[in-house]
């Protein structure tokens, strides 16, 4: 069983969590159609370390960010929204 650390609840089993897409997407203030489409649909989908949003859906219900390796599923760090991502 994989344990994921919720920034508020501490370590919890993975079944309580839901993946919620790529993290740190900045909404452009002004954009061409192509830039807007890129913001909406284009994702990095890296093979390796990725920064992702996760939600503690069956616990406190809050969103947070995680740095996860997409090959090994290793989660190096989790941090609350608005916090600086760890190096």
């Amino acid at each position: 069983m994989l344990l994921i650390r919720c920034p508020w609840c501490g370590e919890r089993p993975e079944i309580e969590f839901r993946h919620a897409g790529e993290a740190h997407l900045a909404r452009p203030a002004a954009a061409t159609d192509a830039e807007w489409a890129a913001y909406l649909y284009e994702r990095a989908n890296p093979r390796g370390w990725a920064r992702e949003r996760w939600r503690h859906a069956h616990g406190c219900g809050r969103f947070f960010n995680a740095r996860r390796h997409t090959l090994t599923d290793c989660i190096a760090a989790t941090y609350a929204p608005g916090e600086e991502p760890p190096p």
Binding site: C9, R12, I15, E16, H58, G59, C60, G61
Partner: peptide, 10 residues
């Protein structure tokens, strides 16, 4: 206290 799942129920 823990908000969690018990028998798959919130």
């Amino acid at each position: 206290v823990a908000a969690t799942q018990v028998a798959h129920l919130a």
